[in-house]
Simulated assay, not measured.
Amino acid sequence: MGRRTATLEPLPGMPDTIGRKPVKAEHAPPARTLDEAIRRSHDIIAEALDRFPIVARQALFSGGNDSTVLLHLTSHYLDSSAHDAVVHVNTGIGIEETREHVRDVARSWNLPLRELHPRDRYDDLVLGRVIARTGKNAGIRPVWKGFPGPAGHTVMYRRLKDEPLQRNRAQIIGSRGRTQKVLYLAGMRWGESERRMRNAAEIDPDGGIVWCSPLVHWTNAQMAEYRRTYLLPQSEVSAHLHMSGECLCGAFAKPGELDEIEFFYPRTAYRIRSLEQRVKAADIPACKWGQKPANQKTPKPGSIAGRLCSSCPAPLAGQTDLMDLWATQGLLTPANTTPTCASQVAA
């Protein structure tokens, strides 16, 4: 699928190796060529398939750049059972253009798509309408109230992303988690953030789910080279906002992020600002999206952000400066920043 072109040099400043040892890695990954990185990825997937009784292989696709590389690399594994598919979690608080891009890519590449939806709506969570179903607060207290801030990310992740994935797993294997497993292929990488450096593993079994991160050892430079080599499509959201935009819970939003979203996607920003007014009218103190509530504690560094939330942590040090550097040097041009149509990549 796709075609190979001449190897391209990484932009200046992009790392071509991971500088230190990830906590969950047995050995610090050596510098590799792109072809070596690709072979290692397939070895990781083969190991997962050999070790566990996998009955369904599913590639998790957010619509962002990294998950597009993952999907292109793993698409030929999605043909072993009726449950094999591309999986996109529609959190209900994302940018619609991202969802359209996900559907377009799956259609263009002739891949089956499962679009999952959470049981609890984001609006109901921040308005305090989702009452605890288990534990000491069952039937009494809401699981959350107000916009999340960093400390509320775990609640949002579990309700908006993990719950539909667990329900999807249950629909496939039910209670047969000992003898049957669902393989979730995810795009987590050690080079993304401190959280990934601490928590991402190549293969991570979790009950009836086996999480597999075949790109975990890839560097930013290798990701960029792969995208250019195979002419992968880029969503307009990733081009504009440098994130997938599939989840805007706001837990780790950067200053001015909502204004940036409003510039490109005013309908999405209007939806969030309207929800702010509803939260404020309900006399809930945490009524500003993307702002940490005054009395909220900051999570400890390295705490788990959620397996699928690669864009939640703050940008890597120097990232903004590199973008400015590349623009100044004329390396960022319309040719390499304009989104490509999914139809340009052959299935």
Rank of each mutant, 00 (worst) to 15 (best):
Tyr265Ile: 00
Trp218Met: 05
Leu127Ala: 06
Pro118Gly: 09
Leu111Met: 06
Asn336His: 04
Arg278Trp: 08
Trp144Tyr: 03
Met323Val: 12
Thr5Gly: 13
Thr268Pro: 01
His117Gln: 06
Leu332Glu: 12
Ala25Thr: 03
Ser108Ala: 15
Asn220Asp: 07
Leu60Gln: 13
Leu70Cys: 08
Thr33Ala: 07
His72Glu: 08
Gly187Pro: 06
His72Gln: 06
Gln319Asn: 11
Pro233Asn: 02
Val345His: 06
Arg103Pro: 02
Pro30Trp: 05
Gly250Glu: 15
Ser80Asp: 09
Pro255His: 13
Ala239Asn: 00
Trp326Tyr: 02
Thr340Pro: 00
Arg99Pro: 02
Ser75His: 14
Ser193Asn: 02
Ile44His: 03
Ala200Arg: 02
Gly191His: 08
Ile95Leu: 04
Arg271His: 09
Thr33Pro: 00
Gly63Thr: 05
Lys297Gln: 10
Val143Trp: 02
Phe263Trp: 09
Arg40Cys: 15
Gln277Thr: 12
Tyr184Phe: 13
Asn336Trp: 00
Tyr230Gln: 00
Trp211Gly: 07
Val182Leu: 02
Ala138Thr: 02
Tyr265Ser: 00
Ala186Cys: 11
Ala294Asp: 14
Ser303Val: 02
Val55Tyr: 04
Asp84Asn: 01
Cys247Lys: 09
Ala170Gly: 08
Leu308Thr: 03
Gly250Asp: 14
Glu97Ala: 11
Pro214Gln: 11
Glu36Phe: 00
Glu192Asn: 07
Ala151Glu: 01
Gly174Ser: 04
Leu49Asn: 02
Leu127Phe: 09
Gly92His: 11
Ala342Met: 04
Met156Lys: 13
Arg189Cys: 11
Arg307Gly: 01
Tyr270Arg: 11
Gly290Pro: 07
Val105Lys: 00
Asp321Cys: 05
Asp50Leu: 06
Gly256Arg: 11
Thr17Pro: 01
Asp124Gly: 15
Ser193Leu: 09
Ser238Phe: 12
Arg228Gly: 07
Val182Glu: 01
Leu258Ala: 10
Asp43Glu: 15
Ala294Pro: 06
Leu116Arg: 10
Leu116Cys: 03
Gly146Met: 05
Met323Leu: 06
Thr74Asp: 01
Gly146Leu: 05
Arg103Lys: 12
Thr98Met: 08
Val87Ala: 14
Arg189Ala: 10
Phe52Cys: 12
Gln234Thr: 04
Ser343Leu: 03
Arg51Ser: 09
Arg51Trp: 12
